[in-house]
Amino acid sequence: MYAMVQLVLIVVQFVMLLALAPFIVGVIRKVKARLQCRRGAGLLQPYADLAKLFRKQPVRSSTTSWIFTAAPYIVFASTVAAGLLMPVFLSHTPLNFAGNIIALVYLLALGTFFLILAGLDAGSAFGGMGSSREAIVATLAEPAMMLSILAIALTAGSTNLSTIVHQSALLEGVVLAPPAHLMALAAMFIVTLAETGRVPVDNPATHLELTMIHEAMLLEYSGRYLALMEWAAGIKLLVFLTLIVNVFAPWGIATSVAPLALVTGTAVYVVKVAGLAVVIGVIESMFAKLRLFRVPELLGAAFILALLALVFFYTLRG
């Protein structure tokens, strides 16, 4: 019985990640459109886009190797696997034992690795350019992310995501070390913008070779391969947003498997994630994309914020 419940929970979480990701992308696009005084496409447009792409005949470059076709599946799988490790609507996620936050970070890195390879495989200058830029952005984001995670992990005395989320959820709004918490949150937010290719680090809506990073790597993809890649990018965004809302403000998440708690947990989660998506949409409308060589300054600032969070965690305890 217990195993059955766990299995059902895994499947529900899996389906939810897959289903919610395009919606979040839609929300951000809608917000941006409204801020630009456009009506914008409907919130469900990304679903239609994916469905269309899946049905199209894919074109593959004749210079590519098997890496090119394998990469979309690997990127998709690694992102989904990362999503299954973290609590979404229930603080005790069944697959929690399979990996902690570091495993999650490295699973996403696996996706990045194959994405970079895929960008190189087609042999055009655009792909190489995107890959090269992705490499530097991912490199610089990693240490900041690790430290900000650690600062939060210390508060809970654990690096297991479920434990972190569960413990802070039980505190119901009380934050143990507010300065550390806030700074770690700021650092994590910057890292999220960088890792998921949002403005001001990358612009997901452009196809201009001077500025694009993520899109440049996908340039040769089409049909179902492109659909998987786009979907994976959406899930990755959702994973990061979920991390932020659940680690830094988990209040409302279901702390037990009671049906009522699960329903409210899910509802609260969707509202929180959608709210954060709105924030990202606003930020994307407010700021211009940074030059590539200004990105280190932004991520350097994130690293310093995370470092200070750590220092303050140890020194400022009231």
């Binding site: 469905a51 899946f54 049905r55 005949q57 074109v59 998709f76 799988a77 992102t79 989904v80």
Partner: peptide, 26 residues
């Protein structure tokens, strides 16, 4: 999980794509 995720991706692609053959181009 990785294998499973990849398989799901493959199944979805198969199911929606109805096995359209890949076209090769430069």
């Amino acid at each position: 999980l990785l294998v499973g995720g990849g398989l799901v991706g493959l199944l979805i692609a198969r199911w929606l794509g109805k096995g359209l053959p890949v076209r090769y181009s430069r």
